[in-house]
């Protein structure tokens, strides 16, 4: 059984129907099916507006799809009972792109990370503190950073805190919605390495949403490409993406920036002679 199963999900926004007005809805997702096995990472690629984040929200259980079902460990997210839902919330965590807006600016790092632990586990204050310190060390920060407030951290450090919060309850799966897009190159690499280590250590599954093939490639096992609300390409082996014949995928692959000026694709003049 797969950890997560998305079956025929269609989602539309803004389908308010009022008296005498015709139904006007924007389709964000149409008939999407995919599955993620245990310990597997699926990279979800696509340009902006392709519906990647909407799919992420649907999988997180915060946006009920118009049609279709999402099964997490065989249970439907949107019909499960309160107890099962509480359990599910523990096993599925999320990290967003904007690290600053996903934390409360008036909480210290300690409070931010201990919040999920307080909700789910009964720990004494000293145990809680020890746990938080341990988590901070795991994500590459220091235990003394506990007393700091979000504004005292840089974007990369704060993203680490978000990751620490996500792994605090040892979840089965994390939805990573563009976790590195607003960070600089060096920090990006640190975070990607950290994600890879955590995956190996805790056997985590990821849904890695991004528009950057480079980042997706370094973390994912399988890749899916979305365009205009549809999954247009799905490869189980990430290397196959480069030989795909899909025009959307080809366009994405061709806009990978060169890693060396020798391989630049833009050049059509003779500046470098």
């Amino acid at each position: 059984m797969n950890l997560l199963e998305v079956v025929g999900v269609t989602h539309t926004y803004g389908s308010f129907r009022s008296f005498r007005r015709k139904e006007k809805a924007a389709t964000a997702l149409s008939d999407i099916s995919l599955s993620i096995g245990e310990g597997m990472c699926l990279g979800l690629l696509g340009t902006s507006g392709a519906g990647k984040s909407t799919l992420g929200k649907v999988i997180l259980g915060v946006e009920k799809p118009t049609k279709g079902t999402v099964l997490f460990q065989g249970q439907d997210l949107y019909t499960m009972g309160a107890a099962a839902r509480k359990h599910f919330r523990r096993d599925l965590q999320v990290v967003f792109q904007d690290s600053f807006s996903s934390v409360n600016p008036r909480m210290t790092a300690e409070k931010i990370i201990s919040e999920p632990l307080e909700n789910y586990e009964r720990l004494s204050p000293s145990e809680l503190k020890r746990n938080v310190a341990q988590l901070l060390e795991v994500v590459g920060l220091h235990a003394d950073d506990m007393t700091k407030y979000p504004m005292q951290f840089s974007g990369g450090q704060l993203q680490r805190i978000n990751i620490a919060r996500a792994i605090a309850l040892k979840p089965k799966m994390i939805v990573l919605d563009e976790p590195v897009s607003s960070l600089d190159m060096v920090t990006q690499t640190h975070i990607l390495t950290l994600l890879n280590e955590l995956k190996a250590e805790y056997g985590l599954s990821y849904l890695f949403i991004t528009h950057d093939i480079r980042a997706a490639y370094s973390v994912s096992d399988a890749l899916a490409v979305m365009d205009k609300g549809r999954v247009v390409e799905m490869v189980q082996d990430k290397d196959e993406i480069f030989s795909s014949q899909q025009p959307v995928v080809k366009k994405l692959v061709s806009s990978i920036l060169p890693e060396h000026p020798r391989n630049r694709t833009l050049l059509n003049g003779d500046v470098f002679v």
Partner: peptide, 10 residues
């Protein structure tokens, strides 16, 4: 900050 952008143009 992206050496990819730099190597594409600079």
């Amino acid at each position: 900050h992206d050496l990819g952008v730099i190597s594409a143009l600079a």
